[in-house]
Amino acid sequence: MEQSGEYRILTKREDVWASLNDPEVLAKCIDGCQSMQRREDGSFLAAVKARVGPIRATFKANLRLVDLNPPASYVIHADVNGGAVGFAKGSAKVFLEEDGAATLLRYEISARVGGKLAQLGARLVDGAARKMAADFFAAFRLEFASPASAGGLSH
């Protein structure tokens, strides 16, 4: 499953980059994130209470930031374990481009699920992944939202 999206943020690229590397910001942008700890190897461990319709589960997510190319791009690898519910693995390539005083944030995600999520939720996987990514980046954009600085959703 692969999807992409793009946002314009009325903030300069270095600041956006800094936020993209700030665990506190990341935690705030993940819906249902209950904790986020940086681990010794530089990865982050998050506990996320996620909900897709009637399905509710607590996931442990291991997030790794790789291919760091500050302040232009990186890749977030997520290894998400929901125990009996199943698991998800995904990565988001995030690209930042200067656009005048603003920044264009582009993402490409790919994800796969396994266990009961795949077995029972096939019809919902695509939509749920799309929603989670959109929710994350929308929330991330709002981090810069003094009303003046938030840009529109370009698509």
Binding site: R112, V113, G114, G115, A118, Q119, L120, A122, R123
Partner: peptide, 14 residues
């Protein structure tokens, strides 16, 4: 089975 090896027709829903 999807390309990742998961059975995606694993219930009477699918």
């Amino acid at each position: 089975y999807d390309g990742d090896g998961q059975l995606v027709t694993g219930s009477y829903m699918d």
